[in-house]
Amino acid sequence: MASLITCPHCGVRPKEEFAIRGDASLIRPAPSASDEAWHDYVYVRANPRGRTVEHWHHIAGCRRFLVVERDTVTHEVYSVVDGTAAAREARR
């Protein structure tokens, strides 16, 4: 894994400052969605080999949730954006 992550708020920081929450490509189902939809959201993971997007929490910095796009084989980090900004972008 890359040792340094560029937080959009705090700048270049060691990756140990972050906690990884997991897959950011999942979309939370509506509260009334089927059990199957909830099962898939809570338990099933695409687990890609290659490009992936994840929620990282900058716990030892700004404490914002970020969306990190990176590669699970080369460990290259492509982008780090603020979680709220990413969600707003997705809604557009």
């Binding site: 040792s3 990756k15 997991g22 994840e54 699970t72 084989v73």
Partner: peptide, 11 residues
């Protein structure tokens, strides 16, 4: 961190 590389991080 999720990974398919058979190598780890120095930290």
């Amino acid at each position: 961190y999720s990974s398919y590389a058979q190598r780890g991080n120095l930290a």
